[in-house]
């Protein structure tokens, strides 16, 4: 019972960390960034390089953010910006970028599965249950991410302007807000977060050129049911992630893997706004 609760909480935390970057980009730019999976892969390899170089595994996180962010800048400038008025094409183009990133990584690192060192090993005793220390640490990291992003959005001028662009871009522009700059910064931040997410999941799984793709669809569905709110994303991660854990343990792991996508599709059919307010 306790183990299952911990599974639900840690799964939700991982999903939250993976989906925040996508949510930010979706909120501001109204496009789904399919390169998110590729950027996660990039972050995973950044972690691999960091640990293979003998550096502290925690350094993988800023390194992944840097890689993701820089590549994100290029993507925004040269691919996403020209497709501003063609949102479905933006999905396709970012998916193409995901392919490009995957193939470049394959050429550089080979196709094989590799393993990055985990910053935390072993287990912790919690409520009489012995549980993976790293998974527990992820809950803390996801919380820090969520709080930091909320602070950024609620407490800074840039955050205020970003929220303004999310709510009503034309009105924001009329008030002197450079929405193009806001979009650029958001996409960069979203890409950096994708890199971080990739680095965070590497100790849980392996590193390979296609590692980001399986996460992409779940993250994408979570974002669609959450609208543009970090809070409803948290809710969605807990509900849908929880459902995934329950289905996986009580029925079959395979069905568990489908839970988020199928539930989200049904939720959106019944309530097109998903968990978002209004």
């Amino acid at each position: 019972m306790i183990g299952q609760m911990l599974d639900i909480v840690t799964t939700a935390a991982i999903l939250y960390a993976v989906a925040t970057g996508l949510l930010l980009v979706f909120g501001v730019m109204k496009i789904i960034n399919f390169a998110h999976g590729g950027l996660m892969t990039l972050g995973g390899y950044a972690a691999l390089v960091t640990t293979q170089a003998g550096l502290n595994p925690w350094l993988a996180i800023p390194a992944a953010a840097l890689f993701g962010g820089v590549v994100g800048m290029g993507i925004e400038r040269f691919v996403v910006r020209p497709l501003y008025n063609r949102p479905l094409d933006a999905i396709l183009a970012t998916w193409g970028l995901s392919i490009i990133i995957g193939q470049l990584i394959t050429i550089a690192f080979g196709r094989g599965v590799q393993f990055a060192a985990s910053p935390l090993n072993g287990t912790l005793d919690l409520f009489g249950e012995s549980y993976s220390a790293y998974r527990l640490a992820l809950v803390g990291i996801a919380a820090v991410l969520g709080i930091a992003l909320t602070a950024l959005l609620q407490g800074t001028r840039l955050g205020l302007e970003t929220r303004a662009v999310i709510m009503n871009e034309d009105l924001a522009r009329g008030l002197g807000i450079n929405s193009g700059l806001v979009r650029f910064l958001t996409f960069t931040l979203g890409s950096a977060l994708a890199g971080v997410a990739g680095a965070l999941i590497t100790p849980l799984s392996s590193v390979d050129p296609g590692m980001g793709v399986p996460w992409l669809v779940n993250a994408f569905m979570l974002v669609l049911v959450s609208g543009a709110s970090l809070l409803s994303l948290l809710f969605a991660c807990l509900v849908l992630g929880g459902a995934q854990v329950l289905v996986a343990t009580h029925f079959s792991p395979v069905l568990g893997g489908l839970t988020i996508a199928v539930l989200a599709a049904v939720i959106l059919r019944i309530r097109p706004k998903g968990f978002a307010r209004d």
Binding site: L160, R163, M167, L171
Partner: peptide
């Protein structure tokens, strides 16, 4: 739609 309905009065002014 000239106001950000979901923001506070202060945020509307600050923007």
């Amino acid at each position: 739609k000239a106001l950000f309905q979901d923001m506070s009065v202060e945020e509307n002014l600050r923007l």
